[in-house]
């Protein structure tokens, strides 16, 4: 098993772990971390792919960079939402009347 294959397999395994985390974790922060782990896992697979051939392929790098931006944005949004929910409290303030 080449090093690149190992990276790839590890990436996929990490993806599984991340997914398990997203599903099993109840706390929102844990879930978010798990999502980020999944993201990292995908990047690992991509980076391994970049070394797949004889020369290093630049495209997966570009993809990873873009992916990181997206992941950051997503995480930030989720955190903001979680914060907003926390700030609103447990009551039904701001709810439409039933």
């Amino acid at each position: 098993m080449s090093q690149e294959m190992l990276y790839c397999a590890a990436g996929i395994a990490l993806f599984g772990i991340g997914m398990f985390g997203v599903i099993v974790a109840t706390h929102i922060i844990r879930k978010l971390i798990a999502v980020n782990i999944m993201g990292i896992a995908v990047f690992m697979v991509l980076l391994a792919t970049a070394r797949h051939g004889a020369v290093t392929d630049p495209i997966p790098h570009a993809m990873v960079l873009t992916g990181i931006v997206v992941a950051v944005a997503g995480t930030a949004l989720c955190l903001w939402l979680a914060l907003q929910i926390r700030l609103l409290g447990r009551g039904t303030k701001g709810e439409p009347p039933r």
Partner: peptide
């Protein structure tokens, strides 16, 4: 509203989960 924010948060997580699955699939294709 709280409902909307909760729904949005769940939506966000689902969206991220979905697109990461998609991305992994695309990586494998590549």
């Amino acid at each position: 509203t709280r409902t909307a924010l909760t729904a949005a948060l769940r939506y966000a997580l689902v969206g991220l989960l979905g697109s990461l699955c998609y991305l992994l699939g695309v990586s494998l294709l590549y």
